[in-house]
Amino acid sequence: MGHAVMTHTQNQITTTLTALTPNAQDAFTRYMEQADNAGTNHDYRTAMACAALTAGIPLPDGGEIALCACPNCWDCQQIFDANTPDAHPFGESDGYNLGRIQCPLCTDRHRATDEQ
């Protein structure tokens, strides 16, 4: 009797900003700016949901997505679950709602430090 070999892959909730149409990129950026400047949790969550919908990805269970803020490559443009354990938050958000987070790939390749 033969045996089936199964490989397991993680269900990634990601895309890249550059994969979106120019109009969708603009809308995504506006929604992320709204989330960054939101004064209430409701406004923040609404902007996050709209940004995920615009990016064409499901909103993760934690309700937050991020655009890679890697200071070492600047061209990643990965949109991902902001609470993924393989991502790396760094630096200060300076009074805004969105933190500076590297996607898992950039974290693995060239982890940022708070001094950057």
Rank of each mutant, 00 (worst) to 15 (best):
D36H: 08
G99H: 06
T84W: 08
G2K: 09
T21P: 09
Q34R: 14
T40M: 03
G99N: 10
T29K: 04
T46S: 12
N41V: 15
Q102C: 14
Q10C: 06
P85H: 06
Y44M: 10
T14K: 09
Q12L: 15
D86I: 02
T9F: 12
N23R: 14
H88Y: 13
R111Y: 08
I57Y: 04
R109L: 15
D108L: 13
D36C: 07
D108H: 14
G56C: 12
A51G: 10
C76Q: 04
T18P: 01
R100V: 01
Q102E: 15
L105P: 00
H110C: 14
T46K: 08
P104A: 12
A38Y: 07
A35Y: 08
H42V: 12
T113I: 13
L67V: 08
D26K: 13
Q10G: 06
T29H: 02
D43V: 04
A27W: 03
E64Q: 14
D86C: 04
H3C: 11
G63A: 06
A19W: 09
T18L: 09
I79H: 01
T84C: 07
Q10D: 11
P85F: 10
F80Q: 00
Y31F: 15
D108C: 10
C103K: 03
G39D: 12
T9R: 15
N23K: 13
P85D: 10
L17Q: 05
T14G: 02
D86P: 01
D61E: 15
H3Y: 11
P85S: 12
M48D: 03
Y96C: 09
Q102I: 04
V5L: 14
A49W: 01
L98Q: 09
T40F: 08
C106G: 07
T46N: 11
Q116M: 12
T40C: 07
N41P: 02
T29Q: 07
G95S: 05
T16D: 05
Q102F: 05
N23I: 08
D94W: 10
A38G: 08
E92G: 03
D86F: 10
I13Q: 08
A35K: 02
C73K: 03
R109Q: 15
I65M: 07
Q12Y: 10
Y44F: 15
A49S: 15
Q34H: 13
L105K: 12
D81Y: 04
A47K: 02
R100A: 09
I79G: 02
A19N: 15
D26F: 04
